[in-house]
């Protein structure tokens, strides 16, 4: 599961590459449009949604505080709160759009795929001050097929400014 791994062990067939790329685009669109239930349905039961609080690649969620380190249960809580109508930090939901680029895909263990990509996300925070917040970072997705459909089991988002003071981050990054 290493993008820099030796050729050809991590080469992904074209059809799979296209499916993974399509998945990343769809996942981004559902998050941007606050389509919470559809977004949650993209996850496997062993979900890990991780946003470290540092750019240090040695960050260890069992030793260091993260912004987000959700398992499936906590991910469902996160989504239910957004759906409650009382998550004031996202009430009303921030209009947002993100660009995904520099996608690299490798074959992982057990038929999984690992995709890394960069993103640039414009979030219009409209809960008090109507400010544009720019979020930039690198995402690692780990995907596998469940009943024929691609699902994500890990999404790790390393923000360029992970260790800086951040405004509310309660939308789906």
């Amino acid at each position: 599961m290493n993008l820099d791994g030796p050729w050809p062990s991590n080469v992904v067939p074209t059809d799979d590459r296209q499916a993974v790329t399509d998945f990343l685009h769809k996942e981004a669109r559902l998050a941007d449009e606050a389509r919470y239930a559809e977004w949650l349905a993209l996850w496997t039961d062993d979900a890990v949604y991780w946003v470290p609080a540092t750019t240090d690649p040695a960050a260890d969620p069992e030793k260091h505080l993260s912004h987000i380190y959700d398992n499936r249960g906590r991910l469902e809580t996160r989504v239910k709160m957004l759906q409650s109508g009382f998550r004031y930090s996202q009430e009303p939901a921030s209009p947002m759009r993100r660009l995904i680029s520099s996608i690299e895909i490798a074959a992982g263990a057990g038929g999984e795929f690992v995709a890394e990509s960069n993103f640039l996300l414009a979030e219009l925070s409209i809960q008090a001050k109507h400010e544009m917040h720019w979020w930039v970072g690198r995402t690692t997705h780990r995907l596998r097929r469940v009943a024929g459909e691609l699902r994500m089991c890990t999404k790790k988002v390393v923000l360029v400014n992970a260790a800086e003071p951040l405004p509310n981050l309660t939308f789906l990054i």
């Binding site: 030793k63 260790a163 405004p167």
Partner: peptide, 10 residues
Amino acid sequence: TAGWVKHRCA
């Protein structure tokens, strides 16, 4: 020793 998270407030 877990590191600090910083939350910006307007």
